[in-house]
Amino acid sequence: MRYIIGIGNYRMADDSIGLRIVEHIDQNGLGKGFEAVGIADEGMRLLSYLENETERIVLIDAVDLGLAAGEYRLFSPGDVQTTKVAQGLTTHEGDALKVLELARTLGYPIPPLTILGIQPGDLGPGMGLSPALQERFHTYLEIALEEVERD
């Protein structure tokens, strides 16, 4: 199975980008040959998709890349190191990289996984995306769809 997984907080503007892409895929029936999953606030749910049978995961998340708002990078977890200090795995402290670190330590199979990291412009309270991300929404969508089908 292949997955596009969105993670983030729906109520905090650009942090919701992954969830909104997943929702768009869901609402428009674009999930052919893969499953689109929104795990929202709870990064630990990512563990359910780390299986031997999983062929590929594309994880979409807001990422502080030091770029201009709306710019993005595709990378694998091994390309980066987290600079967030996390005490635990609450929905607020446990980012996806921490969850993957835990999974690796515990011997979970780690399938090919690409992160589509999008530089947020606004992480304050709000139920919409900032203009910079809204403008490129379909670009992110196309990249995710292309990436999930990659061999």
Partner: peptide, 13 residues
């Protein structure tokens, strides 16, 4: 008190 963001903060190796 679900008000936080969950974004990643990374440095490229």
């Amino acid at each position: 008190i679900s008000c936080s963001t969950h974004y990643l903060k990374v440095d490229f190796k």
